[in-house]
């Protein structure tokens, strides 16, 4: 019951977008299915991390994939790979929810004890704060800079270090 109520509260009403008036073809559905098969599990993992509620994450996933056939053109344009596009679409949907969670969720992320947090546990606190703040909770760079008492350029450098940790699977101190 609690989950049901939270789903009703958190999910914004369906937007009647002009581009949604396009008529779908069987090919659009097939292409969407292919994206779902390839990235559905990745996206559900990502959303679950952001909203911290499995049922709500599934509702978001359904909502996102209902929109995909109308935005397939974005996947064929020169805008990065499919996963990046999907993630951007998910971020647009999750924007309000992600930002609302900021402090509490960020504090939890810094502890990095959850499922799939192996990469986060390799990062130092600062890297984790910046990476989670930007990647999961869509916090503005300026806010993160203010929180850490540093500049936007430094935040980007920290983000870059966090990516190095992900790539190498080693903590930053081990790398240098």
């Amino acid at each position: 019951m609690v989950i049901f109520v939270s789903v009703i509260i958190n999910i914004s009403p369906v937007e009647l977008r002009v581009e949604n008036q396009k008529v779908l073809t069987a090919n659009d559905v097939t292409a969407t299915r292919a994206l779902y098969d390839r990235y559905g599990n990745l996206l559900l993992g990502y959303i679950t991390k952001v909203v911290n509620d499995r049922k709500l994450a599934e509702e978001y996933l359904v909502d996102i994939f209902k929109e995909i056939p109308f935005r397939l053109s974005e996947f064929s344009q020169n805008q990065g790979n499919a996963w990046l596009r999907l993630q951007m679409i998910a971020k647009q949907k999750l924007a309000g929810c992600a930002r609302a969670q900021q402090e509490h969720a960020l504090t939890n992320s810094i502890k990095a004890t959850g499922r799939g947090d192996e990469f986060l546990s390799l990062m130092n606190e600062q890297q984790r704060f910046v990476f989670c703040g930007i990647y999961y909770y869509q916090q503005p760079v300026s806010w993160l800079a203010q929180e850490l008492g540093t500049t936007a350029n430094d935040i980007r450098k920290i983000l870059r270090e966090a990516f190095k940790v992900i790539r190498n699977g080693k903590s930053y101190t081990e790398l240098y």
């Binding site: 990502y46 990469f119 992900i166």
Partner: peptide, 13 residues
């Protein structure tokens, strides 16, 4: 790299 971290956290729908 982004796909790699997403794969670690993947949840089958």
């Amino acid at each position: 790299d982004l796909e790699k971290i997403a794969q670690h956290m993947a949840i089958a729908p």
